[in-house]
Amino acid sequence: MDVLAFLLEPLQYGFLTRALAVTVAAAVVAAVLSCWLILMGWSLMGDAVSHAVLPGVALAYILGIPFSIGAFVFGAGAVALIGIVRSTTKLKADTVIGVVFTALFASGLAIVSATPSQVDLMHILFGNVLGVSAGDVWQVLILGAVTLAVLLFKRRDLTLLAFDRTHAHVIGLNTRLLSALLLGLLALTVVVGLQAVGIILVVAMLITPGATAFLLSRSFDRMLGIAVVLTVTASVAGIYASYYLDISTGAAVVLCQALVFTAVYLFARPDGVLWQARRRAAARAGSGRLAAPRSAA
């Protein structure tokens, strides 16, 4: 089979082009957000929000309203609940996050199990990107575009917030409002990513691209660019892998992102672990030589 046929064959199916559009759109928004999320140290928050939307999605299906509304209400609600418990107890943030999101996730499971015929739990948990309707595609594209626009417009403030919150406060910026904005955008991004890879794997889209790009960047704009390019590549590769290898689409996309991360972790110059090992070996060999008398400088 020649390359062109290999690439075009899946696209003759409408469900696969829709899957491609939804996955790439969700992946781009999540990748951009992930750059701030990992610099803020909020990876666990991404985990929490994505799990906490389960009851919202289940209720939305039962009530017949758009899933994104239910998901956003519960995602934002989880963030607010975490904030309230955090500020009114002496517990550390990760503890509060753990208590709140597991409680919400469990209530989602309870709702789904009580109404088994109406909601397909597997689709919510692991995504159902091959089954998205044209209406779902539009929901994802519009929400994704809005989230991306706000993120990029406020990117300098968000970077300042992540880098030096005290300075942001001292020059009169409202750091609480900026934090709330970023968390709201996180909830929106989770909503966007749900369709593509499901609740469980959306966490990977929220963390891995930023983590990979961070290893390769010394400037934030470059980090954003690298995260987007890597995530689009991994998403497209994942969709094709899922088609030809007949494996779960969400799993294939996340595995491709993990493969890219692994490659960067091992081989990236100059900080990949293999290059580090090579430098250490060279240094050992070098110091051995230096111990001998040197005849010429």
């Binding site: 610099l39 880098f163 960047s217 934030f220």
Partner: peptide
Amino acid sequence: FPVSVADVVAM
């Protein structure tokens, strides 16, 4: 943090 000297001063 991936910021340059000029980025920080601009803040």
